[in-house]
Design a binder for these strands. Sequence first.
DNA 1: ACCTGAACACCGTTCAAGT
DNA 2: ACCTGAACACCGTTCAAGT
Lengths: 233, 233
Amino acid sequence: MSRSAFKKTGRKSTSARAKGRVALTREDVVAAGARLLDSEGIDGVSMRRLADVLDTGPATLYWHVRDKHELLSAVLEETLRDVRAPSAGPWDERLLELLRRGRSALRARPALIDVLWRSGWELGPETLRVVDEAIGLIAASGIPDRDVADVYYTFTTFLFGFVAAEATSPGTGRFPASKDPTRAFPHLAKHRPAADPAGMDRRFEAGIARLVASLAPIRGVKAIRPRHSRARS
Amino acid sequence: MSRSAFKKTGRKSTSARAKGRVALTREDVVAAGARLLDSEGIDGVSMRRLADVLDTGPATLYWHVRDKHELLSAVLEETLRDVRAPSAGPWDERLLELLRRGRSALRARPALIDVLWRSGWELGPETLRVVDEAIGLIAASGIPDRDVADVYYTFTTFLFGFVAAEATSPGTGRFPASKDPTRAFPHLAKHRPAADPAGMDRRFEAGIARLVASLAPIRGVKAIRPRHSRARS
DNA sequence: ACCTGAACACCGTTCAAGT
DNA sequence: ACCTGAACACCGTTCAAGT
Protein backbone atom coordinates (compact mmCIF):
# COMPACT_ATOMS: atom_id res chain seq x y z
CA MET A 1 0.00 0.00 0.00
CA SER A 2 0.90 3.63 0.35
CA ARG A 3 2.87 4.11 -2.79
CA SER A 4 2.27 7.79 -2.26
CA ALA A 5 6.02 8.08 -1.94
CA PHE A 6 7.20 8.78 -5.44
CA LYS A 7 10.63 7.49 -6.26
CA LYS A 8 12.92 10.46 -6.56
CA THR A 9 16.23 8.68 -6.98
CA GLY A 10 17.44 5.38 -8.24
CA ARG A 11 18.51 4.23 -4.81
CA LYS A 12 18.23 0.58 -4.05
CA SER A 13 16.84 0.78 -0.55
CA THR A 14 13.15 0.01 -0.50
CA SER A 15 12.49 1.69 2.81
CA ALA A 16 9.81 4.31 2.73
CA ARG A 17 12.07 6.76 4.44
CA ALA A 18 14.79 6.28 1.89
CA LYS A 19 12.18 7.00 -0.76
CA GLY A 20 11.74 10.40 0.77
CA ARG A 21 8.61 9.99 2.81
CA VAL A 22 8.16 12.63 5.46
CA ALA A 23 8.69 11.50 9.02
CA LEU A 24 6.00 9.37 10.57
CA THR A 25 4.18 10.91 13.51
CA ARG A 26 2.51 9.28 16.48
CA GLU A 27 -0.81 10.40 15.03
CA ASP A 28 -0.05 8.58 11.79
CA VAL A 29 0.64 5.42 13.70
CA VAL A 30 -2.48 5.67 15.84
CA ALA A 31 -4.68 6.51 12.87
CA ALA A 32 -3.32 3.57 10.90
CA GLY A 33 -3.90 1.38 13.95
CA ALA A 34 -7.53 2.47 14.07
CA ARG A 35 -7.99 1.78 10.38
CA LEU A 36 -6.44 -1.63 10.74
CA LEU A 37 -8.69 -2.40 13.70
CA ASP A 38 -11.72 -1.38 11.69
CA SER A 39 -10.82 -3.37 8.63
CA GLU A 40 -9.33 -6.52 10.12
CA GLY A 41 -10.64 -6.73 13.65
CA ILE A 42 -8.54 -7.06 16.74
CA ASP A 43 -7.02 -10.36 15.66
CA GLY A 44 -5.77 -8.65 12.55
CA VAL A 45 -3.98 -5.94 14.48
CA SER A 46 -0.37 -6.79 15.02
CA MET A 47 2.62 -4.55 15.26
CA ARG A 48 4.06 -6.24 12.21
CA ARG A 49 0.98 -5.77 10.07
CA LEU A 50 0.71 -2.20 11.20
CA ALA A 51 4.33 -1.69 10.21
CA ASP A 52 3.57 -3.19 6.79
CA VAL A 53 0.70 -0.80 6.25
CA LEU A 54 3.01 2.07 7.12
CA ASP A 55 5.72 0.79 4.82
CA THR A 56 8.22 0.32 7.56
CA GLY A 57 9.53 -2.33 9.95
CA PRO A 58 8.02 -3.28 13.28
CA ALA A 59 10.88 -1.78 15.25
CA THR A 60 10.06 1.66 13.94
CA LEU A 61 6.71 1.68 15.70
CA TYR A 62 8.41 1.47 19.06
CA TRP A 63 9.84 4.88 18.60
CA HIS A 64 6.33 6.35 18.43
CA VAL A 65 4.52 4.18 20.91
CA ARG A 66 5.68 2.38 24.04
CA ASP A 67 4.03 -0.93 23.22
CA LYS A 68 0.90 -2.45 21.76
CA HIS A 69 -1.21 -1.59 24.77
CA GLU A 70 -0.33 2.07 24.49
CA LEU A 71 -1.21 2.01 20.82
CA LEU A 72 -4.65 0.63 21.56
CA SER A 73 -5.18 3.06 24.42
CA ALA A 74 -4.53 5.86 22.00
CA VAL A 75 -7.12 4.40 19.63
CA LEU A 76 -9.56 4.28 22.54
CA GLU A 77 -9.00 7.96 23.22
CA GLU A 78 -9.71 8.73 19.60
CA THR A 79 -12.83 6.62 19.71
CA LEU A 80 -14.28 8.37 22.74
CA ARG A 81 -13.58 11.87 21.52
CA ASP A 82 -17.12 12.31 20.23
CA VAL A 83 -18.92 10.47 22.97
CA ARG A 84 -20.51 13.19 25.06
CA ALA A 85 -23.82 13.82 26.73
CA PRO A 86 -26.21 16.34 25.23
CA SER A 87 -25.52 19.65 26.88
CA ALA A 88 -29.10 20.37 27.84
CA GLY A 89 -32.17 18.53 28.99
CA PRO A 90 -33.25 16.57 32.04
CA TRP A 91 -30.55 14.42 33.65
CA ASP A 92 -32.26 11.16 32.78
CA GLU A 93 -32.55 11.86 29.07
CA ARG A 94 -28.98 13.10 28.93
CA LEU A 95 -27.76 9.98 30.70
CA LEU A 96 -29.71 7.68 28.40
CA GLU A 97 -28.29 9.46 25.38
CA LEU A 98 -24.74 9.27 26.72
CA LEU A 99 -25.17 5.53 27.14
CA ARG A 100 -26.51 5.20 23.61
CA ARG A 101 -23.55 7.10 22.20
CA GLY A 102 -21.15 5.04 24.23
CA ARG A 103 -22.73 1.91 22.87
CA SER A 104 -22.51 2.95 19.27
CA ALA A 105 -18.91 4.14 19.53
CA LEU A 106 -17.71 1.01 21.27
CA ARG A 107 -19.73 -1.39 19.20
CA ALA A 108 -17.60 -0.47 16.22
CA ARG A 109 -14.44 -1.35 18.16
CA PRO A 110 -15.42 -3.71 20.92
CA ALA A 111 -11.87 -4.86 21.55
CA LEU A 112 -11.29 -1.49 23.17
CA ILE A 113 -13.49 -2.53 26.07
CA ASP A 114 -10.84 -5.01 26.96
CA VAL A 115 -8.18 -2.35 26.66
CA LEU A 116 -10.22 -0.22 29.04
CA TRP A 117 -10.58 -3.01 31.57
CA ARG A 118 -6.89 -3.78 31.43
CA SER A 119 -6.01 -0.15 32.02
CA GLY A 120 -7.22 0.08 35.59
CA TRP A 121 -7.39 3.80 36.23
CA GLU A 122 -4.52 4.64 33.92
CA LEU A 123 -6.90 6.31 31.53
CA GLY A 124 -6.40 9.07 29.03
CA PRO A 125 -8.13 12.44 29.35
CA GLU A 126 -10.93 11.69 26.90
CA THR A 127 -11.82 8.52 28.68
CA LEU A 128 -11.78 10.26 32.04
CA ARG A 129 -13.99 12.97 30.67
CA VAL A 130 -16.63 10.47 29.63
CA VAL A 131 -16.48 8.83 33.04
CA ASP A 132 -16.82 12.22 34.65
CA GLU A 133 -19.86 13.11 32.59
CA ALA A 134 -21.54 9.84 33.48
CA ILE A 135 -20.90 10.27 37.18
CA GLY A 136 -22.14 13.84 37.04
CA LEU A 137 -25.44 12.78 35.48
CA ILE A 138 -25.91 9.98 37.96
CA ALA A 139 -25.30 12.38 40.81
CA ALA A 140 -27.82 14.74 39.26
CA SER A 141 -30.51 12.12 39.80
CA GLY A 142 -30.53 13.13 43.42
CA ILE A 143 -29.61 9.77 44.91
CA PRO A 144 -27.52 9.95 48.08
CA ASP A 145 -23.92 10.88 47.44
CA ARG A 146 -22.58 7.69 48.92
CA ASP A 147 -24.49 5.61 46.35
CA VAL A 148 -23.20 7.39 43.29
CA ALA A 149 -20.06 5.33 42.78
CA ASP A 150 -21.97 2.06 43.17
CA VAL A 151 -24.59 3.12 40.68
CA TYR A 152 -21.87 4.20 38.29
CA TYR A 153 -20.52 0.67 38.44
CA THR A 154 -23.89 -0.79 37.64
CA PHE A 155 -24.24 1.41 34.59
CA THR A 156 -20.76 1.03 33.25
CA THR A 157 -20.86 -2.68 33.80
CA PHE A 158 -24.09 -2.96 31.89
CA LEU A 159 -22.82 -0.86 29.01
CA PHE A 160 -19.49 -2.62 28.60
CA GLY A 161 -20.90 -6.05 29.23
CA PHE A 162 -23.67 -5.49 26.74
CA VAL A 163 -21.43 -4.23 23.99
CA ALA A 164 -18.85 -6.94 24.58
CA ALA A 165 -21.58 -9.54 24.39
CA GLU A 166 -23.29 -8.20 21.31
CA ALA A 167 -20.05 -7.72 19.46
CA THR A 168 -18.43 -11.06 20.13
CA SER A 169 -21.45 -13.26 19.69
CA PRO A 170 -22.19 -14.18 16.11
CA GLY A 171 -25.08 -12.00 15.05
CA THR A 172 -27.11 -15.00 14.13
CA GLY A 173 -29.77 -16.10 16.53
CA ARG A 174 -28.85 -19.68 15.75
CA PHE A 175 -29.73 -21.81 18.65
CA PRO A 176 -28.32 -24.54 20.84
CA ALA A 177 -26.80 -27.30 18.80
CA SER A 178 -27.80 -29.92 21.33
CA LYS A 179 -30.21 -32.57 20.21
CA ASP A 180 -33.31 -31.75 22.14
CA PRO A 181 -32.96 -28.50 24.02
CA THR A 182 -36.67 -28.29 24.62
CA ARG A 183 -36.70 -31.37 26.77
CA ALA A 184 -33.48 -30.64 28.60
CA PHE A 185 -33.85 -26.89 28.98
CA PRO A 186 -37.49 -25.95 29.17
CA HIS A 187 -37.10 -22.31 30.24
CA LEU A 188 -34.51 -21.67 27.57
CA ALA A 189 -36.79 -23.23 24.99
CA LYS A 190 -39.69 -21.02 26.01
CA HIS A 191 -37.83 -17.71 26.24
CA ARG A 192 -35.19 -17.82 23.54
CA PRO A 193 -32.92 -14.83 23.89
CA ALA A 194 -32.02 -14.82 20.21
CA ALA A 195 -29.43 -12.27 19.26
CA ASP A 196 -31.02 -10.68 16.22
CA PRO A 197 -29.98 -7.06 15.75
CA ALA A 198 -33.42 -5.55 16.28
CA GLY A 199 -33.72 -7.60 19.44
CA MET A 200 -30.42 -6.27 20.68
CA ASP A 201 -31.53 -2.69 20.15
CA ARG A 202 -34.72 -3.31 22.05
CA ARG A 203 -32.84 -5.07 24.81
CA PHE A 204 -30.36 -2.27 25.18
CA GLU A 205 -33.15 0.26 25.49
CA ALA A 206 -34.99 -1.92 27.96
CA GLY A 207 -31.82 -2.36 29.98
CA ILE A 208 -30.89 1.29 30.28
CA ALA A 209 -34.51 2.26 30.89
CA ARG A 210 -34.65 -0.25 33.72
CA LEU A 211 -31.45 1.07 35.21
CA VAL A 212 -32.43 4.71 34.98
CA ALA A 213 -35.88 3.93 36.31
CA SER A 214 -34.27 2.34 39.36
CA LEU A 215 -32.90 5.80 40.20
CA ALA A 216 -35.81 8.03 39.35
CA PRO A 217 -38.52 6.82 41.73
CA ILE A 218 -36.69 7.75 44.85
CA ARG A 219 -37.06 11.44 44.20
CA GLY A 220 -40.50 11.31 42.74
CA VAL A 221 -39.48 11.92 39.17
CA LYS A 222 -42.01 10.35 36.91
CA ALA A 223 -40.85 7.05 35.47
CA ILE A 224 -39.11 7.40 32.12
CA ARG A 225 -41.06 4.58 30.57
CA PRO A 226 -43.20 1.75 31.73
CA ARG A 227 -40.81 -0.78 33.16
CA HIS A 228 -42.06 -3.58 30.97
CA SER A 229 -43.91 -4.25 27.77
CA ARG A 230 -43.48 -1.92 24.91
CA ALA A 231 -44.78 -2.39 21.42
CA ARG A 232 -42.56 -4.58 19.31
CA SER A 233 -41.82 -3.75 15.75
CA MET B 1 6.47 -32.28 35.92
CA SER B 2 4.54 -35.52 35.93
CA ARG B 3 7.39 -37.84 36.62
CA SER B 4 4.74 -40.34 37.69
CA ALA B 5 5.98 -42.41 34.78
CA PHE B 6 8.67 -44.62 36.28
CA LYS B 7 11.37 -45.64 33.94
CA LYS B 8 10.94 -49.29 33.18
CA THR B 9 13.57 -49.69 30.53
CA GLY B 10 16.80 -48.07 29.53
CA ARG B 11 15.37 -46.74 26.32
CA LYS B 12 16.75 -43.50 25.02
CA SER B 13 13.54 -41.86 23.90
CA THR B 14 12.50 -39.14 26.29
CA SER B 15 8.87 -39.16 25.29
CA ALA B 16 6.50 -39.82 28.13
CA ARG B 17 4.77 -42.46 26.14
CA ALA B 18 7.98 -44.31 25.48
CA LYS B 19 8.57 -44.24 29.21
CA GLY B 20 5.42 -46.27 29.63
CA ARG B 21 2.91 -43.65 30.64
CA VAL B 22 -0.66 -44.72 30.19
CA ALA B 23 -2.51 -43.04 27.36
CA LEU B 24 -3.57 -39.45 27.86
CA THR B 25 -7.29 -38.82 27.98
CA ARG B 26 -9.27 -35.76 27.02
CA GLU B 27 -10.03 -35.30 30.70
CA ASP B 28 -6.32 -35.22 31.49
CA VAL B 29 -5.80 -32.54 28.92
CA VAL B 30 -8.73 -30.42 30.10
CA ALA B 31 -7.77 -30.78 33.76
CA ALA B 32 -4.21 -29.77 33.02
CA GLY B 33 -5.54 -26.83 31.03
CA ALA B 34 -7.59 -25.71 34.01
CA ARG B 35 -4.59 -26.00 36.33
CA LEU B 36 -2.45 -24.03 33.94
CA LEU B 37 -5.12 -21.34 33.68
CA ASP B 38 -5.30 -21.12 37.46
CA SER B 39 -1.57 -20.94 37.99
CA GLU B 40 -0.45 -18.79 35.06
CA GLY B 41 -3.50 -16.88 33.94
CA ILE B 42 -4.85 -16.82 30.42
CA ASP B 43 -1.69 -15.36 28.95
CA GLY B 44 0.21 -18.30 30.34
CA VAL B 45 -2.03 -20.83 28.64
CA SER B 46 -0.60 -21.93 25.33
CA MET B 47 -0.87 -25.24 23.59
CA ARG B 48 2.88 -25.57 23.80
CA ARG B 49 3.08 -24.93 27.52
CA LEU B 50 0.20 -27.28 28.11
CA ALA B 51 2.03 -29.90 26.10
CA ASP B 52 5.13 -29.34 28.24
CA VAL B 53 3.17 -29.84 31.43
CA LEU B 54 1.83 -33.09 30.02
CA ASP B 55 5.28 -34.23 28.95
CA THR B 56 4.42 -34.35 25.31
CA GLY B 57 4.55 -32.27 22.16
CA PRO B 58 1.97 -29.72 21.05
CA ALA B 59 0.77 -31.85 18.17
CA THR B 60 -0.41 -34.51 20.58
CA LEU B 61 -3.01 -32.24 22.07
CA TYR B 62 -4.79 -31.98 18.76
CA TRP B 63 -5.76 -35.58 18.94
CA HIS B 64 -7.72 -34.92 22.13
CA VAL B 65 -9.11 -31.49 21.40
CA ARG B 66 -10.04 -29.75 18.16
CA ASP B 67 -8.28 -26.50 18.93
CA LYS B 68 -7.56 -24.04 21.70
CA HIS B 69 -11.09 -22.71 21.79
CA GLU B 70 -12.51 -26.16 22.35
CA LEU B 71 -10.05 -26.73 25.15
CA LEU B 72 -11.15 -23.57 26.91
CA SER B 73 -14.81 -24.38 26.35
CA ALA B 74 -14.26 -27.65 28.10
CA VAL B 75 -12.66 -25.82 31.01
CA LEU B 76 -15.71 -23.55 31.11
CA GLU B 77 -18.00 -26.55 31.36
CA GLU B 78 -15.94 -27.85 34.26
CA THR B 79 -16.06 -24.47 35.93
CA LEU B 80 -19.83 -24.18 35.76
CA ARG B 81 -20.54 -27.69 36.98
CA ASP B 82 -21.12 -26.52 40.54
CA VAL B 83 -22.88 -23.28 39.75
CA ARG B 84 -26.51 -23.96 40.51
CA ALA B 85 -29.37 -22.18 42.21
CA PRO B 86 -30.50 -23.35 45.65
CA SER B 87 -33.27 -25.86 45.14
CA ALA B 88 -35.73 -24.22 47.50
CA GLY B 89 -36.76 -20.78 48.59
CA PRO B 90 -38.40 -17.73 47.02
CA TRP B 91 -37.44 -17.02 43.44
CA ASP B 92 -35.69 -13.78 44.28
CA GLU B 93 -33.39 -15.28 46.87
CA ARG B 94 -32.58 -18.21 44.62
CA LEU B 95 -31.78 -15.87 41.76
CA LEU B 96 -29.55 -13.69 43.90
CA GLU B 97 -27.69 -16.75 45.12
CA LEU B 98 -27.25 -18.11 41.61
CA LEU B 99 -25.72 -14.81 40.58
CA ARG B 100 -23.38 -14.86 43.57
CA ARG B 101 -22.25 -18.37 42.72
CA GLY B 102 -21.75 -17.41 39.12
CA ARG B 103 -19.63 -14.51 40.18
CA SER B 104 -17.39 -16.51 42.43
CA ALA B 105 -16.88 -19.29 39.90
CA LEU B 106 -16.06 -16.94 37.06
CA ARG B 107 -13.96 -14.58 39.10
CA ALA B 108 -11.42 -17.34 39.50
CA ARG B 109 -11.21 -17.78 35.73
CA PRO B 110 -12.39 -14.56 34.16
CA ALA B 111 -10.90 -15.36 30.77
CA LEU B 112 -13.73 -17.86 30.36
CA ILE B 113 -16.19 -15.00 30.02
CA ASP B 114 -14.53 -14.20 26.76
CA VAL B 115 -14.73 -17.81 25.71
CA LEU B 116 -18.43 -17.71 26.49
CA TRP B 117 -18.98 -14.56 24.46
CA ARG B 118 -17.07 -15.96 21.52
CA SER B 119 -19.13 -19.14 21.58
CA GLY B 120 -22.39 -17.63 20.46
CA TRP B 121 -24.96 -20.25 21.30
CA GLU B 122 -22.59 -23.16 20.74
CA LEU B 123 -22.57 -23.90 24.43
CA GLY B 124 -21.99 -27.09 26.33
CA PRO B 125 -24.69 -28.74 28.42
CA GLU B 126 -23.51 -27.37 31.77
CA THR B 127 -23.47 -23.84 30.46
CA LEU B 128 -26.92 -24.27 28.97
CA ARG B 129 -28.18 -25.63 32.24
CA VAL B 130 -27.05 -22.54 34.12
CA VAL B 131 -28.68 -20.31 31.52
CA ASP B 132 -31.84 -22.34 31.82
CA GLU B 133 -31.91 -22.01 35.58
CA ALA B 134 -31.46 -18.27 35.38
CA ILE B 135 -34.25 -17.86 32.85
CA GLY B 136 -36.51 -20.06 34.93
CA LEU B 137 -36.03 -17.91 38.00
CA ILE B 138 -36.56 -14.70 36.09
CA ALA B 139 -39.78 -16.09 34.65
CA ALA B 140 -40.82 -17.08 38.16
CA SER B 141 -40.84 -13.40 39.10
CA GLY B 142 -44.12 -13.12 37.28
CA ILE B 143 -43.07 -10.49 34.74
CA PRO B 144 -44.79 -10.81 31.37
CA ASP B 145 -43.45 -13.68 29.28
CA ARG B 146 -42.35 -11.41 26.50
CA ASP B 147 -40.01 -9.52 28.82
CA VAL B 148 -38.17 -12.54 30.15
CA ALA B 149 -35.49 -12.74 27.49
CA ASP B 150 -34.75 -9.02 27.74
CA VAL B 151 -34.42 -9.20 31.49
CA TYR B 152 -32.18 -12.23 31.16
CA TYR B 153 -29.90 -10.11 29.01
CA THR B 154 -29.77 -7.38 31.61
CA PHE B 155 -28.78 -9.84 34.30
CA THR B 156 -26.25 -11.81 32.36
CA THR B 157 -24.71 -8.64 31.01
CA PHE B 158 -24.34 -7.25 34.50
CA LEU B 159 -22.81 -10.45 35.83
CA PHE B 160 -20.30 -10.95 33.04
CA GLY B 161 -19.46 -7.30 32.75
CA PHE B 162 -18.94 -7.00 36.47
CA VAL B 163 -16.70 -10.01 36.74
CA ALA B 164 -14.71 -9.07 33.67
CA ALA B 165 -14.19 -5.60 35.07
CA GLU B 166 -13.24 -6.65 38.56
CA ALA B 167 -10.87 -9.33 37.34
CA THR B 168 -8.98 -7.36 34.74
CA SER B 169 -8.61 -4.13 36.62
CA PRO B 170 -5.70 -4.02 39.02
CA GLY B 171 -7.15 -4.50 42.48
CA THR B 172 -5.66 -1.28 43.64
CA GLY B 173 -7.87 1.73 43.81
CA ARG B 174 -4.99 3.83 42.57
CA PHE B 175 -6.35 6.84 40.89
CA PRO B 176 -5.99 8.88 37.73
CA ALA B 177 -2.42 9.67 36.92
CA SER B 178 -3.34 13.02 35.46
CA LYS B 179 -1.98 16.09 37.13
CA ASP B 180 -5.04 17.67 38.59
CA PRO B 181 -8.06 15.45 38.27
CA THR B 182 -10.02 17.49 40.76
CA ARG B 183 -10.03 20.53 38.59
CA ALA B 184 -10.56 18.74 35.30
CA PHE B 185 -13.00 16.07 36.48
CA PRO B 186 -15.02 17.36 39.40
CA HIS B 187 -17.62 14.58 39.55
CA LEU B 188 -14.97 11.90 39.36
CA ALA B 189 -13.05 13.61 42.12
CA LYS B 190 -16.08 13.71 44.37
CA HIS B 191 -17.33 10.17 43.81
CA ARG B 192 -14.25 8.04 43.36
CA PRO B 193 -15.24 4.55 42.34
CA ALA B 194 -12.16 2.96 43.87
CA ALA B 195 -11.85 -0.73 43.21
CA ASP B 196 -10.98 -2.04 46.67
CA PRO B 197 -12.18 -5.62 47.21
CA ALA B 198 -14.69 -4.81 49.94
CA GLY B 199 -16.10 -2.10 47.73
CA MET B 200 -16.49 -4.55 44.89
CA ASP B 201 -18.44 -6.95 47.08
CA ARG B 202 -20.74 -4.20 48.21
CA ARG B 203 -21.16 -2.98 44.65
CA PHE B 204 -22.02 -6.42 43.37
CA GLU B 205 -24.66 -6.84 46.04
CA ALA B 206 -26.04 -3.40 45.34
CA GLY B 207 -26.15 -4.15 41.63
CA ILE B 208 -27.98 -7.45 41.81
CA ALA B 209 -30.32 -6.10 44.47
CA ARG B 210 -31.16 -3.19 42.20
CA LEU B 211 -31.79 -5.51 39.27
CA VAL B 212 -33.95 -7.93 41.22
CA ALA B 213 -35.83 -5.06 42.81
CA SER B 214 -36.67 -3.77 39.35
CA LEU B 215 -38.63 -6.99 38.82
CA ALA B 216 -40.32 -7.43 42.15
CA PRO B 217 -42.49 -4.32 42.43
CA ILE B 218 -44.60 -5.07 39.45
CA ARG B 219 -46.28 -7.97 41.16
CA GLY B 220 -46.39 -6.46 44.58
CA VAL B 221 -43.68 -8.58 46.12
CA LYS B 222 -42.06 -6.62 48.91
CA ALA B 223 -38.75 -5.10 47.93
CA ILE B 224 -35.76 -7.30 48.70
CA ARG B 225 -33.78 -4.48 50.20
CA PRO B 226 -33.91 -0.76 50.36
CA ARG B 227 -32.76 0.42 47.00
CA HIS B 228 -30.07 2.69 48.35
CA SER B 229 -28.00 3.31 51.43
CA ARG B 230 -26.84 0.44 53.49
CA ALA B 231 -24.40 0.52 56.36
CA ARG B 232 -20.79 0.49 55.23
CA SER B 233 -18.23 -1.57 57.05
C1' DA C 1 15.33 12.71 15.76
C1' DC C 2 13.87 9.01 13.40
C1' DC C 3 14.49 4.65 11.32
C1' DT C 4 16.50 -0.06 10.12
C1' DG C 5 17.90 -5.22 10.16
C1' DA C 6 18.53 -8.80 12.71
C1' DA C 7 17.72 -11.39 16.46
C1' DC C 8 15.28 -13.50 20.65
C1' DA C 9 11.83 -15.99 22.52
C1' DC C 10 7.72 -17.14 21.66
C1' DC C 11 2.74 -18.54 19.25
C1' DG C 12 -1.42 -22.12 16.94
C1' DT C 13 -1.97 -25.59 13.75
C1' DT C 14 -1.02 -29.23 10.18
C1' DC C 15 0.75 -33.39 8.47
C1' DA C 16 3.21 -37.38 7.21
C1' DA C 17 5.12 -40.81 9.77
C1' DG C 18 5.77 -43.93 13.62
C1' DT C 19 4.10 -47.59 17.18
C1' DA D 1 -5.75 -45.57 18.72
C1' DC D 2 -2.53 -42.56 20.17
C1' DC D 3 1.62 -40.05 19.64
C1' DT D 4 5.84 -37.76 17.45
C1' DG D 5 9.11 -34.40 14.88
C1' DA D 6 9.35 -31.15 11.85
C1' DA D 7 7.60 -27.59 9.52
C1' DC D 8 4.65 -23.37 8.27
C1' DA D 9 3.28 -19.01 9.07
C1' DC D 10 3.01 -16.15 12.34
C1' DC D 11 3.68 -13.09 17.08
C1' DG D 12 5.77 -8.68 20.52
C1' DT D 13 9.84 -6.58 21.77
C1' DT D 14 14.83 -5.24 22.09
C1' DC D 15 19.04 -3.40 20.52
C1' DA D 16 23.06 -1.95 18.22
C1' DA D 17 23.69 0.48 14.27
C1' DG D 18 22.69 3.72 10.59
C1' DT D 19 21.37 8.56 8.67
